[in-house]
Design a protein around this nucleic acid. Structure first.
Length: 937
DNA sequence: GCTCTGCGAAGAGGA
């Protein structure tokens, strides 16, 4: 049986008769009696006691009931697996680097995989290997895959020919091996096999499976008889997961598709620099392929190693680091290792370089590290939904599209597949075209699943056709969101780059040790708006940073365009960034409209993320290395999301100024990803609108005084005499850097106070509640605009209660979950009434707090319907807000008034609030809103 | 009890 639960107590390891080790761990089982129960771990599993501690989750499979001294408990059997913290999903490559050296694991995590030639070449060879397995022609594949890596190769100074030759030599070893009778009629192959293990808490992608057994490609040389230990561990991880899955793999062989199940007791490592094929018979050492048997002992060692790693991650604290028995002498990470040790004042075998961080910086680093790791756990929780979802919850969950009917599959040139499926119902999900998703036969964990990219989802209606592309074919019965740790990884590397490697002068201003400085002459950039003109001056004269505070409709985007143009004219190289692709494209559009030469501009990012009209300046990554990299390096303006700024390529770029839009929606580490690349920075945002989305409750609030570094650590520098001395700055993921600096250095900030969007009545509430009344209409025309101004509108045809610029409607509905159908009906009726009076449906927007209500309303109207969060940044002539709540305002969505500030400031001429007066009047803020909305009745 | 966008992900190596 399986036993699982949080650990209450860890006993002392003991040795009993005949030298058998055991340890008793007390856990509180999740099922049945709540009483703690004793679990005896025998033999090697007793090692778990070395790192297990109270609070960690323990899972024991195949446990047996046992009685000892009259007490009933459980014990491991020879078939048991013991897993610590199974919910922490360890990556296979993490296990690999951990066995090499635990510090290497941490360093990779902190500093990311750098832009180095062996990495890029290795990736290319892996891709060629996959292509070969999928039947692609070798030369065609090499040509294509080397071209794809064009930009990275260019950044490394390589030319295409030499890389092609080297890849060809590596691939020849693979191809030779494949042709050496190994690829027979009986062989079944799968490339790029995604594995996720709920039991062992491991995930990863095997390079290939042959007859259901893992094959791992290594683009190096290994002349020893045995594979390298860390390579064996990696392959054994896959073998372990395959065994759990009871692999039943659909693969293809030269004779066509067939199904075969295998027992993963053998794994193969392919060392592509071992090229002595002709002598392979007599000298097994030099043959590229090394097979080895994966016995139960190795598998258990894999699990114990993984447990050790998961236990070390338990408290989500900055690693103190130890090297186990690694030898540093030949380590490629030596430099990084010494720098990190030096900055964090850690002991390390390799030694330390540089001075330890001042206490305030140390606290900052540790606090954000923990916040980011808490977010990582939230990503792991998303993975759990892949297997925890039960039939009963299906209707509520929107992370997957279920019960799809597979249609056809089509092989694309290059060996990829286009797969189609039909959606039987009108279910909506978070999935969107361009997303990476997991397409499966219905069971994404133990069934057949493939990573894919969504091409199209049709409409939300029943019968819509779904199209995805994947490396291998699968009957698409289900499509899941594929959770990614990418953004947490990028935040971590940005934190590393900013704090451990960051420029001391930059850190002085970020930590309030020095005031931001400005220099140079004032000029007139904007003639008719003093605040905007001041903003451009502040941004262009900033020696350190400038902040532009732009409330709704105040011409933020125009100000950005003016600023970027002015900076480029000063001869500066500019990075334009924001959290979302949409925001980046919007800002870039304004810059282009301003007349900045297209030849100066590069839009960096994925093809599917970038808007159609910006594709012409998008940097194509594939092509000639030299050409690709000069296109990037020669651009005076590079526009990219903050996530892209953390990419290997962008981390190597340098700018004079980074300008970040919608900076108030970015976590501080995400902002660092952009500003790390520049000497100076300008943040544009509004902290009175939506803050960054943070998942983890614990990650939202922490104060530096609670951090380990402040007691003890380096007391030499205490953080200076800035804001930090008076009261600790608000350092948490849900406070943006924009907001923090705005409080710390108000003199570096300009408020854009004139808005060009809303009628006077509409803006009044927001101005009073959020901007101390400072927000005002830019001119009389803006202030006095009315719905009657819209062409073809007959005001008399609009019901009297909706004629004013702000109105309130109580539909007397009932909240049901996150929807309110009666209210949705009433919203649709209001839309119809406006349309009947001649308002173009395209000029109407509907906003609701919940996605479920958005879906409810979308079924009834053709106007744009979206959540508040997704409406930020845009506006419509007429806006209708659905509040959903009845009776009381229960739910976190109502807690943050800034969300309402966004919803209420999207309308230009008419704003209709649809909600339950009882619920709204139950909260002082919403009650004031109600007063304001009703006053005009 | 909610809101959510990014990213192909994983990719290497010597004594």
């Amino acid at each position: 049986m399986r036993i699982r639960g949080p650990i209450v107590d860890v006993g002392e390891p003991r040795t009993v008769g005949g030298g058998t080790d055991l340890v008793e761990i007390t856990i509180r089982p999740e099922r049945g009696a709540a009483d703690p129960v004793r679990v005896t771990l025998w033999n090697k599993w007793s090692e778990t006691a070395d790192y297990a501690e109270a609070g960690m989750e323990l899972l024991v499979t195949d446990a047996e009931e046992s009685e000892f001294q009259g007490e009933v408990g459980y014990e491991t059997t020879p078939d048991s697996w013991v897993v610590l913290e199974p919910e922490f999903l360890v990556d296979v490559t993490a296990v690999r680097s951990w066995v090499q050296c635990p510090r290497m694991y941490y360093l990779n995590k902190l500093s990311g995989v750098p832009l180095k030639y062996p990495v890029v070449k290795g990736t290319v060879v892996h891709e060629v290997f996959g292509d070969l397995l999928r039947g692609r022609d070798l030369e065609d594949s090499i040509d294509h895959r080397v071209a794809e890596a064009g930009l990275e190769l260019g950044a490394l100074g390589y030319d295409r020919k030499e890389v092609e030759d080297e890849v060809r030599r590596n691939a020849a070893a693979v191809e030779g091996w494949l042709q050496q009778g190994t690829l027979t009629e009986e062989d079944t192959w799968r490339s790029e096999y995604t594995l996720i293990s709920p039991t062992f808490g491991i995930k990863g992608r095997a390079d290939a499976l042959r007859r259901g057994m893992p094959v791992e490609l290594k683009t190096g040389k290994n002349t020893k008889r045995e594979p390298r230990f860390q390579d064996k561990m990696q392959a054994a991880c896959y073998a372990l997961m395959l065994e759990e899955q009871g692999v039943d793999v659909e693969g293809h062989s030269p004779s066509g598709s067939q199904t075969q199940s295998g027992n993963a007791d053998t794994a193969t490592l392919l060392y592509t620099k071992n090229t002595a094929l002709e002598r392979a018979e007599e000298t097994g050492d030099l043959a590229p392929a090394k097979e080895f048997s994966v016995g139960p002992g190795l598998l258990k060692f894999v699990v114990r190693t993984r447990n050790e790693l998961a236990a070390m991650e338990f408290d989500a604290a900055v690693p103190t680091g130890f090297e186990a028995d690694a030898r540093c002498q030949y380590c490629f990470e030596q430099d990084t290792c010494m720098v990190v040790s030096g900055r964090l004042d850690q002991e390390s075998k390799a030694g330390q370089i540089g001075k330890p961080l001042p206490a305030a910086e140390r606290a900052y680093f540790e606090g954000f590290y923990q916040g980011i790791e808490a977010e990582r756990r939230e990503v792991h929780a998303e993975y759990r939904k892949l297997w925890e979802q039960t039939a009963g919850e299906r209707a509520e969950d929107d992370r997957a599209l279920l019960d799809l009917e597979p249609l056809d599959r089509e092989e694309l040139p290059g060996g990829r597949w286009r797969l189609r499926a039909r959606k039987p119902d009108d279910a909506v999900s978070k999935l969107r075209p361009g997303d990476v998703a997991l397409a499966s036969d219905g069971d994404p964990v133990s069934g057949h699943a493939e990573l894919c990219r969504i091409q199209s989802l049709g409409t939300g209606k029943a019968g819509a056709e779904i199209v995805v592309e994947a490396d291998e074919p699968v009957d698409v019965c289900r499509l899941d969101v594929y959770p990614s740790e990418l953004s947490v990884d990028r935040m971590l590397t940005a934190l590393h780059d900013g704090v451990l490697k960051g420029d001391p002068g930059r850190k002085d201003v970020l930590f309030g040790r020095r005031d931001p400085e400005f220099s140079g002459p004032q000029r007139e950039y904007v003639g008719n708006n003093d605040a905007q003109n001041e903003a451009v001056n502040l941004a262009t004269r900033a020696e350190d940073f400038a902040l532009v505070h732009g409330p709704p409709g105040t011409g933020k985007t125009y100000t950005i365009a003016q600023t970027v143009q002015a900076l480029i004219e000063q001869g500066e190289r500019v990075l334009l960034s924001a959290f979302t692709n949409r925001a980046v494209d919007n800002a870039l559009e304004a810059v282009r409209e301003q007349g900045v030469d297209d030849a100066e501009i590069v839009r960096f990012g994925t093809e599917s993320g970038i808007r159609e009209d910006m594709q012409d300046v998008r940097l194509e990554q594939a092509g000639d290395p030299g050409e690709r990299i000069s296109e990037l390096r020669d651009a005076s303006l590079v526009a990219a999301t903050t996530a892209s700024c953390g990419s290997r390529i962008m981390r190597e770029e340098a700018f004079d100024v980074a300008l970040v839009d919608e900076a108030s929606q970015l976590t501080e580490p995400a902002t660092l990803a952009a500003i790390n690349l520049a000497e100076r920075f300008v943040l544009v945002g509004d902290h009175e609108q939506l803050p960054p989305v943070v998942q983890a409750e614990g990650g939202k609030r922490w104060a530096p005084e609670h951090s380990a570094a402040t007691d003890g650590g380096t007391a030499a520098e205490s953080g200076g005499d800035g804001a930090t001395a008076d009261r600790p700055p608000r350092l948490d993921l849900s406070t943006s850097l924009f907001e923090r600096l705005h409080e710390m250095a108000p003199e570096a900030s300009v408020l854009l106070d004139r808005q060009y969007r809303m009628a006077q009545r509409i803006q009044a509430f927001s101005s009073r509640e959020f901007y101390d009344g400072a927000l005002r209409p830019a001119n009389g025309e803006v202030a006095a605009q009315r719905i009657a101004d819209l062409p073809g509108v007959d005001v008399d045809a609009i019901p009297r209660n909706l004629r004013g610029s702000v109105s309130f409607v109580d539909p007397d509905g009932e909240r049901a979950g996150n929807t309110n159908p009666t209210e949705a009906d009433r919203v649709a009726e209001v839309v119809d009434q406006f349309v009947a009076a001649g308002v173009d449906e395209e000029d109407i927007g509907v906003i609701a707090p919940f996605r479920a209500q958005v879906a409810e309303i979308s079924r009834r109207v053709d106007a744009t319907v979206d959540t508040v969060d997704r409406f930020q940044g845009s506006s419509e002539e007429v806006i209708i807000v659905s509040f959903v709540a009845t009776g009381e305002l229960s739910g976190p969505i109502y807690d943050d008034p800034r969300r309402m500030n966004v919803a209420l400031t999207r309308a230009k001429k008419s704003l209709v609030l649809v909600g339950d007066a009882g619920a709204l009047s139950s909260d002082p803020f919403y009650d004031r809103m109600l007063d304001w909305a009703r006053r005009e009745l």
